[in-house]
Design a protein around this nucleic acid. Structure first.
Length: 417
RNA sequence: GGUGGGAUGCCCGAGUGGCUAAAGGGGGCGGACUGUAAAUCCGCUGGCUAUGCCUACGUUGGUUCGAAUCCAACUCCCACCA
């Protein structure tokens, strides 16, 4: 493969987005000739996307910046079936109302990363429920079912894995790849889409769509996959203490989002800067060369750039300021989570355990008790190891705030109403 | 439809009448060490108005002083046979 000439593919290779591509040279040619449309499909299994979906999202953004048209395919129809790829067990089927609700939440995420509209390179969002729900079973089987070889489908990784491990695979799920293949063909017909991208676990599904369209419409389509990311120490991307790293502000405050990137493992910094920021490569090469404690500077840049894309520059600066005050000056910043308490209530004294739980630092009083006993709890940066301790007005600082901490990283503020 | 096997805490998985809030592992969290990193070591890991109480071993009943453990019915899953 010669090195690509189109802006998009050049960047894809350079920044580490490429895992596999069906026909790099031919795709490069088409992209050089003019604007193309490409799509990525997203499940509607939750009401927000999380950091695990960020690579494909960034890929669509890069596509748009390179002068092409991104199509976001919402799996309103296929989510009703459930993708078996990469999963041991069938997924719980979601109700229709829940799926609709999830679609609405996910739409808000994309508006941050892509420009939607009617222009030639404006992004569009489509929902495969629009064409899948109306399919007639017998017609579908006769028109398209005959192009799928079961023999071949059994060889696909997603299916093979289930069969080898003797995990049940229902006929419903077995049909997922057929529906996704049909999606690709449908999008090529409706929107002139010629490229489907996705995670490396989608390779089989993508290739199926290309094959189907070649057989039925005699059209050449392309597929390109991105690597499925794990951190250098093997953990799945996008998981953290409190659960998933959501991209919607209402599910994960921008301060916590910033912290997630700030805590990136050393070995991942360069990779993440390439994938999740839009800094020039030369700048990234400079940053990833930093060693020892200096690499923290690179992590701050990563946190800033990533947060800026998702939540805006202002939120990123706010998070950085709070982090600086909290971690580097031993004070606290206004972006920390906070709870408000009535003065009268505080005068009467509030149990420490109760306060920790109300502030969201602990899930239950029992957990709070354990933390206190493990001397992990601080009030105004003073260690407290008596579970019966009370908060009172004497603890308020000059600004009328009490700072609570659990461990080194979790902090919250108690303010008066 | 028949026969056999299974369902345990976030996950995997021991446990076959009291010593079981349930071994062990994973994951997660806290502490030490550091650089808000990794690795390593130590500890914690059902809830509560807390020397006690409540909830929990698929569901519902039963036997027993006492059940995750025994019995019955039911639900779901798996395997083999038809």
């Amino acid at each position: 493969m010669t090195s690509p000439r189109s802006n998009f593919l050049k960047a894809v290779v350079e920044r580490g987005y490429l895992h596999q591509c069906t026909d790099m040279d031919a795709l490069d040619d088409s992209m050089g000739k003019g604007t193309i449309s490409a799509y990525i499909g997203f499940d509607a299994t939750a009401d927000s996307l999380h950091a695990g979906s960020l690579v494909p999202i960034m890929l669509l953004r890069l596509l748009q910046k390179s002068g092409h048209k991104p199509i976001v395919l919402m799996g309103g129809g296929t989510t009703r079936v459930g993708d078996p790829s990469g999963k041991d067990e069938s997924r719980q089927l979601l109700t229709e109302e829940k799926i609709e609700e999830n679609l609405a939440g996910i739409k808000r995420v994309f508006s941050k990363f892509l420009t939607f509209g009617d222009g030639p390179t404006d992004a569009v969002m489509v929902n495969n429920a629009d064409w899948l729900m109306g399919l007639n079973y017998i017609d579908f089987l006769r028109d398209y079912g005959r192009h799928f070889s079961v023999n071949r489908m059994l060889g696909f990784e997603s299916v093979k894995m289930r069969l080898e491990r003797e995990q049940p695979l229902s006929f419903l799920e077995f049909n997922y790849m057929i529906l996704q293949a049909y999606d690709f063909m449908e999008l090529s017909r409706r929107n002139g889409c010629v490229l489907q991208m996705g995670g490396s676990d989608q390779w089989g599904n993508i290739v199926n769509g290309i094959d189907l369209t070649r057989r039925v419409d005699e059209k050449q389509l392309f597929g390109l996959t991105v690597p499925l990311l794990t951190t250098a120490s093997g953990a799945k991307m996008g998981k953290t203490a409190g659960g998933a790293v959501w991209l919607n502000e209402d599910k994960l405050p921008s301060y916590d989002y910033w912290q997630y990137w700030r805590n990136t493992e050393d070995a991942d910094v360069g990779k993440f800067l390439r994938l999740f920021t839009e800094l020039p490569i030369e700048e990234i090469e400079r940053l990833e060369k930093l060693e020892g404690a200096e690499i923290n500077e690179a992590k701050k840049v990563l946190a800033h750039e990533a947060t800026k894309l998702c939540h805006g520059e202002e939120a990123a600066l706010r998070a950085a300021e709070t982090a600086q005050k909290t971690f580097e000056q031993g004070a606290f910043g206004g972006d920390l989570p906070s709870i408000e308490i009535d003065r009268g209530e505080l005068e009467g004294g509030i149990g420490l355990l109760d306060a920790l739980t109300r502030a969201g630092l602990t899930a239950t009083n029992g957990e709070a008790r354990r933390f206190v006993q493990q001397s992990a709890v601080k009030v105004n940066d003073e260690k407290v190891d008596d579970p019966r301790a009370q908060l009172n007005t004497a603890m308020l600082n000059a600004e009328g705030i009490i700072k609570l901490s659990v461990g080194k990283k979790k902090h919250a503020l108690v303010k008066l109403t």
